[in-house]
Design a protein around this nucleic acid. Structure first.
Lengths: 138, 138
DNA sequence: TCGTTATATTACCACGCAGTAGTAGAGGCG
DNA sequence: CGCCTCTACTACTGCGTGGTAATATAACGA
């Protein structure tokens, strides 16, 4: 749930080799597997919907179902996956189970991706406009 | 194909203000689809291997095959997907086709995820240690 | 022109997984 | 105690896709 500060950079075997301790270009396959798994969890619209619905704070399953419009069994399955991946945290209160984003860093990450994708789409549409402009001049 | 700008909040420089112009919690489903697709592209170890092999600069397909140890058809398919997603850029030079990362921002993103995941794993292992310590005292 | 190398594409199988209906279990409440 | 709500789990189906062999295409050299 509570993540240790991101920068941390304490002495691990990796940091002794010098340079940035996470050099993607020479990362062991297991580490790539972890990364791939993390991205996979975020690679489904339904799960992103769930994550987004939790941006305003913790919600129980019923509230998530209402917010997303997904089926109950489906939400439960996705929540299990999100929990196992450490993306959301689970907390039982009486009959209800509340979920919340485990690490707010996730929202920064999504914002970053969003901006990059928006810039990309914008650039593509500009290129399309230029293309159609050229076509006009034929 | 042409996407009308999602929020069209004009100020592309809004990223400078720090507060993100894209509020994930109320993003249209199409935008979530774009995000999901972006993450999906990065959710396979093979594709991450390819991306990593390109960290040191552009490579042609043969070099990528050598660097990753993947099959030729497989690499070609993944490269097509990466290209369509705008993650890598394609450039033909004679017989060879060179690929490179389209947006270096990707590496920052991967580094961020890497550090977060590392912190998470570290914390989990600590909890495991505490747990086994408790068990000893039984 | 023929042959060779480099890349892309197709067809195919196998597996994972999203969605769903039905069921199970766990707490509250009367 | 029985009933109800909330959540999790279990098949099950269909679709998407990763890996691979075989084939196609393209560019260069002899």
């Amino acid at each position: 749930m509570t993540f240790t500060p991101v920068k941390k950079r304490q002495k691990t075997a990796a940091s002794q080799t010098g340079e940035s301790e996470y050099n993607i270009s020479q990362l062991p396959p297991e580490a790539l597997g972890l990364m791939a798994n993390f991205f996979k969890v975020l690679s489904e619209v339904s799960r992103l919907q769930i994550v987004c619905s939790l941006k305003t704070g913790a919600k129980n399953v019923t509230e998530i179902i209402e917010a997303t419009g997904l089926g109950q069994a489906n939400v439960s399955k996705h929540l299990k996956m999100l929990t196992q991946a450490g993306v959301v945290a689970r907390e039982q209160r009486g009959v209800c189970v509340y979920y919340q984003i485990a690490n707010p860093f996730l929202f920064n990450l999504c914002d970053l991706v969003c901006e990059a994708l928006f810039a990309q789409v914008e650039q593509q549409s500009q290129q399309l406009q230029q293309l159609s402009a050229l076509r006009q001049n034929l």
